[in-house]
Simulated assay, not measured.
Amino acid sequence: MSALRSDLWCAAFVRRHNDLGHMCVVSRLGDPIAGQVWIEVDHLNGSVSLFTPAPLASRTDDTAGLVFQRRFARVEPGKVRDRIAQEARFDPDFWVLSIDLRSDDVGIDVIA
């Protein structure tokens, strides 16, 4: 089975969270077909988490769709902004989804 296009996955993610009452927006548009997806979580207490795509080697055969790793957990916002800016210089085709969420349950597959 082929992977879902990035633009469709992002649209579904944003729609699902907004329907649940979480403020979620696309803060950076990427390549519509195969752009990587990064998720920035504002915990509404001055801390931010960042989820980035997991390395392919960490995926199992039973995972369908995108799999993420927690790059930063509840750190100051500047650290996440710097990491996103660094990636933008390297790969301008990635997506950033920003969500306001007090909990750590983003509703995505995260490797341990």
Rank of each mutant, 00 (worst) to 15 (best):
D109N: 14
Q69R: 14
G107N: 02
F13W: 00
W38S: 10
S49P: 01
F68D: 04
F68P: 06
G46L: 00
V25W: 15
R15M: 11
D93I: 06
R102N: 04
T52F: 01
L29R: 15
G78H: 09
R74W: 02
S47A: 10
L29P: 06
L20W: 06
H17N: 12
D19L: 13
F68G: 05
R81L: 11
G30S: 05
R89K: 13
S6Y: 03
F94T: 05
F13D: 05
E87C: 07
N45A: 08
A57E: 15
T63H: 15
D104Y: 04
D93Y: 11
P53S: 00
L50E: 05
R59E: 08
P55G: 04
A11E: 09
M23G: 10
S98D: 11
R28P: 03
L20Q: 12
P32G: 00
L101D: 00
W95E: 04
D91R: 02
A11Q: 06
P77S: 04
V80L: 02
F94C: 08
F72V: 03
S103L: 00
S49V: 03
T60N: 09
P32C: 00
R74I: 06
S27H: 15
M23A: 14
A112D: 12
Q36K: 15
A3I: 09
R71D: 10
A64S: 12
L97F: 11
M1D: 07
D61S: 14
G35M: 01
V14C: 06
T60M: 09
F90A: 10
T63M: 13
R15V: 01
D100Q: 14
H43P: 04
S47P: 02
R71Y: 07
G21A: 07
R70W: 03
L56S: 13
L8K: 13
S58D: 11
H22S: 04
G30T: 03
Q86G: 09
A11G: 04
F68C: 04
D109H: 14
V14I: 11
T60W: 07
G30V: 03
A11F: 02
R15A: 10
R74D: 04
G35D: 01
T63E: 15
F51D: 02
E87D: 06
V67M: 12
E76I: 12
L56Q: 13
E40V: 13
T52M: 06
R83Q: 13
L101H: 02
L101T: 01
I84Y: 03
L8W: 08
A11W: 04
A3C: 09
T52N: 02
P92K: 11
A34Q: 12
F51A: 05
